[in-house]
Design a protein around this nucleic acid. Structure first.
Length: 656
DNA sequence: AGCACGCCGACT
DNA sequence: GTCGGCGTGCTC
């Protein structure tokens, strides 16, 4: 007998091997095997078992790794479709499904501090109506997709729990995806209280042992409720009745390395395979998903009221051009924001200040020669971090001392310009002596348990003001917070990216949602130099529809997603001229392959950050109604490989 | 992805 | 005269 095997390599096709006679008929698709491959011995995945092969001199397999197929038939189907849709290989998808060495030997069951079982609360009439629609869909056992648009605090999680309970009642499992596991301890607790030992966590920070145990339990059907990050969409549950994406707009659902899949699309594919229901939940749906809902490919359901009738916080926009005109220099805190913050602190309430940039200063510039300190490995300015007293590159993580003089001219010192969360923190200490401030950003949250510690400090009122990046916008449920101040809404708005408006609307809405979650009403102030921008206006009025109308009109006019689909090709290499030449030749070849088909080709142009870790990057973009013809043209030019004239080419379908 | 084979520049 | 650069091709 012959086994067809794929490998964790950028080679799509399978390789045939002889199954040693002595093994009997025990080899099946989904098993891992050890196979000779050139001079190497590689772990491969069996995708087919046949009686014959077209290849003449077959080598025998060396070893069987699994006694039972590790990869379920559904996972095999998903790997096939994912590889097809994202121009990667099945082997790359398989490797992504079971990250790290999987030990299948059974280990003691996962500690589950099963909290008190909780009985479900009564649904509001709005929730009940939505749930009826979900239940009807799940009972039908046919694929359905819902977009659940619910304002912050409207009780989406309770609906997720009910839907999963319904799936369990049918003898099926449920998967709930969350953007980041560290951010959702409260959600996880709720799942545990409701489903006890059925709950299993799946995310990248599991140890090899935990991973093995989780995999075994999911496959055996002893735990049927999966809560996890992106890759949990591939979980080896036997039968899935529902797939939920909480905060479906979150960019972390798109993997930024091969395989560059979007969990939403994999979830839809899985629902089709298993006759499951997909629920995409968000207070700020992605433009892509809302577009599909408008076209009726998804069914739109809404929760417009908050639980306990809590009002939405009052949001005011502060025009920073006024402050600039009066003081003739940029200020960090306007008088209004300053005053509001002082009031909140004095009345023993808590405040959140949001600025979407970490570090102390954005640029270190020499006033004598004008030089800005750049990273030597990346074409990007270095950010000064006061805590470490160093310049840090946010692309490659290199650090350098600031130094006393400018390295370019050796005359001037370096002046620090631009804001970061560290500077906001230090400025608060200067303006409000004795104030208790905590900071929440990637740097401050690097240590283990730092989330839990910060959370405890906030709930026990030891901290008055929390300063942070978008980390504070997501999921924090702190009832004592009454005031939220946005230091600058322009950081994300002015990014050279067509999603800047969407990203800004999302951030502002989410961060505003942190205010007034308790008894006292919330107040939000947004500082900006673009007070009339539709994203800021819509966010300040809690008006998603208005945002969407303006945004989709722009996307339509400029031929951007979701109206057209994109594929981004990045040509990489060490030598600038080689990469540029390869990018230009590739463009010409693609143009030829496209012929008279309706595919737009843009570029080539140097990437926005042209060099990262000494690698030069050139970018070209294909645009068309459908992805398939674009992939066809790319395949015609690149063939099996992902190299062109010696340069690696990254293929990103639906880039973020 | 690795690894082998294969032709053109600066060193013992 | 060799060591070594990375272009190209192959792996059942």
């Amino acid at each position: 007998m012959i086994a067809e095997v794929v490998f964790h390599l950028p080679i799509s096709r399978g390789f045939d091997y002889l199954i040693p006679e002595a093994w009997g008929v025990s080899v099946q698709p989904g098993m891992r095997v050890l196979a000779p491959f050139g001079a190497r011995r590689l772990v491969g995945y069996v995708v087919d078992v046949r009686a014959s092969s077209r290849i003449r001199h077959l080598k025998p397999l060396l070893r069987r790794i699994d006694d039972e197929p590790l990869i379920t038939p559904v996972q095999q189907g998903l790997a096939q479709q994912t590889a097809q849709a994202y121009a990667c290989t099945r082997g790359e998808v398989y490797a992504n499904m079971l990250p790290a060495a999987l030990r299948v030997r059974s280990s003691p069951p996962q500690e589950s501090t099963a909290p008190e079982h909780e009985s479900p609360p009564t649904l509001t009439s709005q929730q009940a109506a939505v749930f009826d629609a979900f239940r009807a869909a799940i009972v039908s056992r046919r694929p359905h997709t819902f977009l659940l648009h619910g304002v912050t605090g409207s009780g989406k999680t309770e609906l997720y729990l009910r839907v999963i309970a319904e799936a369990l009642a049918q003898g099926r499992g449920g998967i709930c995806l969350v953007p980041e596991i560290a951010m959702t301890p409260q959600t996880i607790d709720r799942f545990r209280r409701r489903f006890g030992d059925e709950v299993v966590l799946w995310h990248s920070r599991l140890t090899a042992r935990q991973r093995g145990e989780a995999w075994g339990a999911m496959k055996a059907g002893s735990r049927r409720v999966v809560v996890g990050t992106r890759s949990a969409v591939f979980a080896p549950l036997a039968a899935v009745g529902c797939l939920i994406l909480d905060e479906e707009h979150d960019p972390s659902y798109k993997q930024d390395q091969t395989p560059r899949y979007h969990a939403r699309d994999v979830a839809l594919a899985r629902a089709r395979l298993e006759g499951a229901v997909v629920i995409l939940g968000s207070a700020t749906p992605s433009v892509e998903s809302y577009y599909e809902a408008q076209r009726r490919t998804y069914r739109l359901v809404c929760l417009t009221e908050r639980i306990n009738q809590r009002p939405m916080p009052k949001v005011e926009v502060i025009d920073m051009r006024d402050a600039l005109a009066h003081r003739h220099r940029a200020v960090m805190l306007s008088d209004r924001l300053s005053l509001a913050l002082r009031r909140a602190v004095e009345s023993q309430e808590q405040a959140i200040l949001f600025l979407n940039r970490r570090g102390f200063a954005r640029v270190a510039q020499c006033p004598a020669c004008g030089a800005v300190r750049q990273c030597h490995a990346c074409s990007t300015p270095m950010i000064y971090h006061a805590t470490r007293q160093q310049l840090l590159c946010h692309y490659c993580n290199r650090s350098e001392p600031l130094g006393d003089t400018c390295p370019s001219c050796d005359r001037g010192y370096l002046r620090l310009r631009g804001l970061g969360t560290e500077r906001v923190e230090s400025e608060l200490h200067r303006l409000f002596p004795g104030i208790s401030v905590a900071r929440m950003d990637t740097d401050a949250m690097a240590a283990r348990e730092s989330h839990r510690r910060l959370y405890d400090a906030m709930t026990s009122q030891q901290v008055g003001v929390l300063v942070g990046t978008q980390m504070v916008a997501k999921g924090l449920d702190l009832p004592q917070v009454t005031f939220v101040g946005v230091i600058s809404a322009d950081t994300s708005l002015n990014l050279p990216d067509f999603r800047a408006g969407e990203h800004t609307f999302d951030l502002l809405t989410q961060v505003a949602g942190r205010a007034g979650r308790g008894e006292r009403p919330g107040r939000v102030l947004i500082q900006t130099y673009c007070p009339t921008h539709y994203a800021i206006q819509a966010a300040s009025h809690h008006d998603y529809e208005a945002f969407y109308r303006a945004e989709i009109a722009m996307r339509q006019r400029l031929g951007l997603p979701p109206c057209l689909r994109l594929i981004e090709l990045t040509v990489q290499g060490r030598k600038a001229e080689t990469v540029e030449r390869a990018a230009e030749t590739l463009t010409r070849a693609l143009k030829q392959a496209i012929g008279r088909r309706r595919i737009h080709l843009l570029g080539p142009a140097p990437h926005r950050v042209a060099m990262v870790r000494k690698t030069i990057r050139w970018r070209l973009v294909l645009k068309a109604r459908r992805v398939a013809p674009m992939l066809e043209a790319i395949r015609a030019v690149l063939g099996e490989t992902r190299h062109f004239h010696g340069c690696p080419v990254v293929i990103d379908v639906d880039p973020l």
